[in-house]
Each structure stands twice: as C-alpha cells, then as structure tokens.
Deep mutational scan, measured.
Amino acid sequence: KVMEIKLIKGPKGLGFSIAGGVGNQHIPGDNSIYVTKIIEGGAAHKDGRLQIGDKILAVNSVGLEDVMHEDAVAALKNTYDVVYLKVAKP
C-alpha cells in the first residue's frame, strides 16, 4: 500500500532515521530506503503514520529508488519545513 505523508519539520528535523540504498543494502538484494528508527517527540512520531519498516519511495519530487544512501540522506536534509513523503507500507 502506497501513501503520501505530509510532515512539518520540527526543531530536530523530521524525526526518523533511514537505512538502505545502493552499496548499503538494508535487506540483501534490495536497494530500497527503509525507516529504521522513529525519534520520540519528533515530527514523524507526532504524526503517527510513518512506521519502522516503511519504505520511502520519494521525498517531495525526488525519487529514492536505486539511489545511494548518501543521496537519500541529502534528499531528506535538503527540504523546507513542509515535506511530502511517498511511502510503501510493508
């Protein structure tokens, strides 16, 4: 199931950690970017929809399929206060 989640960045950013990407696979044979941690009190935690194990398909208009881990981190960092995440639920 794919959904779009709109998050408003807090003082600590979006409030979640990711793993995965080309050269840094979270699941062997899979280059996808996965949510590995939700920080308590952060934007994602308060919103409640993003969960550990969700796959991040895109940030705003930037696709995160088959990208390097660093590029995924940069895509999440290089955002304004309002961030749209395209997410696939497991």
Rank of each mutant, 00 (worst) to 15 (best):
K1Y: 03
M3S: 07
E4V: 09
E4H: 06
K6H: 07
K6R: 08
K6S: 09
K6I: 09
L7A: 01
L7Y: 05
L7N: 02
K9I: 15
K9Y: 05
P11T: 12
P11R: 08
K12M: 10
K12P: 11
K12V: 11
G13Q: 04
L14N: 03
L14E: 03
G15N: 01
F16N: 01
F16V: 11
S17H: 06
I18A: 05
A19N: 11
A19E: 09
G20C: 02
G20S: 03
G21L: 01
V22F: 07
V22S: 07
N24D: 15
H26L: 07
H26Y: 11
I27L: 14
I27Q: 14
I27S: 11
I27V: 15
I27C: 08
P28T: 15
G29E: 13
D30L: 03
D30I: 04
S32Q: 07
I33P: 02
I33Q: 03
Y34A: 02
Y34E: 02
V35Q: 00
T36Y: 12
K37R: 09
K37P: 00
I38Q: 01
I38N: 01
G41T: 05
G41V: 02
G41L: 05
G41K: 07
G42A: 10
A43Q: 14
A43G: 06
A44V: 05
H45E: 15
K46F: 11
G48N: 10
R49D: 05
Q51I: 05
Q51T: 15
G53F: 04
D54S: 07
D54A: 05
K55A: 10
I56S: 00
L57V: 13
V59R: 00
V59K: 00
N60S: 04
N60A: 03
S61W: 08
S61T: 14
V62I: 12
V62R: 14
V62P: 01
V62S: 15
L64P: 02
L64M: 15
L64S: 02
E65H: 13
E65A: 11
D66M: 08
D66Q: 14
V67Q: 08
V67W: 05
M68Y: 14
M68W: 08
H69P: 14
H69S: 10
H69V: 08
E70C: 13
E70A: 15
D71S: 13
V73W: 07
A74R: 13
A75Q: 11
A75P: 02
A75H: 14
K77C: 11
K77G: 10
T79D: 13
V82I: 11
V82Y: 10
L85N: 01
L85W: 00
K89I: 06
K89R: 10
K89H: 09
K89G: 08
P90Y: 15
